[in-house]
Amino acid sequence: MIDVKHLSKSFGDHLVLDDISEHIYPGDKVVIIGPSGSGKSTFLRSLNLLELPSAGTITFDGVEITSPKTDIDKVRRQMGMVFQHFNLFPNMTIQRNITLAPVRTKLMSQAEADEKALQLLRRVGLEEKAGAYPNQLSGGQKQRIAIVRALAMNPKVMLFDEPTSALDPEMVGEVLAVMKELAADGMTMVVVTHEMGFAREVGNRVLFMDQGKIVEQGSPAQVFGNPQNPRLQDFLSKVL
């Protein structure tokens, strides 16, 4: 579904991604772990071209999105993204946060988008917040809304960039619950996270990144139960 070939990215002299090749299959739940500065967020953000690669290609559903000729807006409509800091639009109500993109990109009429928003809000238990503004919500609520906002575009894949890292501990659970439900529904997901429990429970593949490379990968049982690479062993000894 997403094919990454020889992806490199550098900021000035600093090489953040070092010749990464990876494939993400439909229905995959890929969890990316690694120490901070390992390039995992940059890798995720490259997948929908929020970061422009310095070298290499990314192909999504047969379209080479790294080609300058590709209409990247069209590709992004099929890739939902959830950010660490939610990035809800504070100048709009929740309802409008959710319906703006589907309506503006002519994916749905306003009435259809409203209906979709209500249905998704009900699913995460926040339908009474439709008329509220983002600043009136808790962090956990904001992140659930951010997930709903991305889902409203009917994406084929969801990218999560440390979705629980900015949350108070007691709110992490409610966001992970929504993500687990999404995974159970068969959504293709790529998740950068520090939640090892989530990685173990939901991921079908875990990638360990360090210094711009995918150092080790495998099923959660392999990666957590029988790590081979010394840097992964070291990392796990610190976080588990």
Binding site: D73, R77, M79, L88, T105, A150
Partner: peptide
């Protein structure tokens, strides 16, 4: 303005103009 606002708009598939018009400019104006 937090660059994350424009990123969120673009990641939803909105183009540059719409992102500026609905997300960046109203907040910057305020």
């Amino acid at each position: 303005l937090d660059p994350g606002q424009a990123e969120a708009g673009r990641s939803l598939g909105l183009n540059y103009i719409d992102t500026m018009r609905f997300i960046v400019i109203p907040q910057a104006f305020k």
